[in-house]
């Protein structure tokens, strides 16, 4: 094109595009902002949001399936067998509880919020809640202890279980001496419930 015409065309293009841009920014100056003032205003979380884990320890049967499912190993569970004279009750889903759960720790700092621990739980006692504000100054405070057993209770349960085990071992030895098939020493594993 003619250089003179190009020169004036360029100037015109520059000026008109600047004017368009400035009109847009001026318009946006008066558009309500999209910022959410977080601590004062909170967005409603989606129904199935996965945030902090919660364990309803009353329903836990100590099956350890959540711990095994966890990809980051943030759940630690210890169990003690109950003796036949103890009745640990039934869970709300109707399962018989056969194990004491003296330790059910979740290190929420490690948790990756994948939700894989929730699905295998036969009694639906481990769930993801919508609580997401739980920052702490000390990292150790992020290890949540869900077990409600007192040390004394743990000790009694342990002693009893040991005694029962010794008795069972003695019986087994006696049974081994006699040519008779031994009865099963441990309670049968908890059958998995159908997925809900």
């Amino acid at each position: 094109m003619d250089p003179v015409r190009t020169y004036f065309r360029n100037i015109w293009l520059a000026l008109s595009s600047i004017a368009i841009g400035m009109r847009i920014t001026m318009k946006h100056l008066f558009v309500p902002s999209v910022t959410v003032q977080y601590p004062d205003v909170k967005l409603k979380l989606p129904e199935r949001a996965r945030n902090r884990l919660y364990v309803n320890i009353d329903d836990c049967i100590g099956c350890d399936q959540c711990s095994m499912a966890c990809p980051v190993d943030c759940i630690t569970i210890e169990t003690i067998k109950s003796t036949p004279d103890q009745d640990l009750g039934v869970t709300s889903t109707g399962h018989k509880k056969r194990l004491h759960v003296p330790k059910f720790d979740i290190d929420i700092a490690k948790c990756c919020y994948c939700g894989l621990c929730v699905y295998p739980c036969p009694t639906e006692c481990i769930v993801m809640t919508d609580v997401y504000e739980f920052s702490e100054f000390d990292r150790n405070n992020l290890i949540y202890n869900f077990s409600v057993m007192t040390p004394a209770e743990v000790e009694t349960a342990r002693v009893k279980a040991k005694k029962a085990e010794e008795e069972a071992a003695a019986k087994k030895a006696a049974a081994a001496a006699a040519p008779k098939p031994a009865p099963p020493a441990s309670p049968p594993p908890v059958p998995p419930t159908e997925p809900t």
Binding site: L29, S33, Q37
Partner: peptide
Amino acid sequence: KVSAHIQDRLAYM
């Protein structure tokens, strides 16, 4: 403030 509102933000509050 002007820069924030032009970008539909709020700036310091």
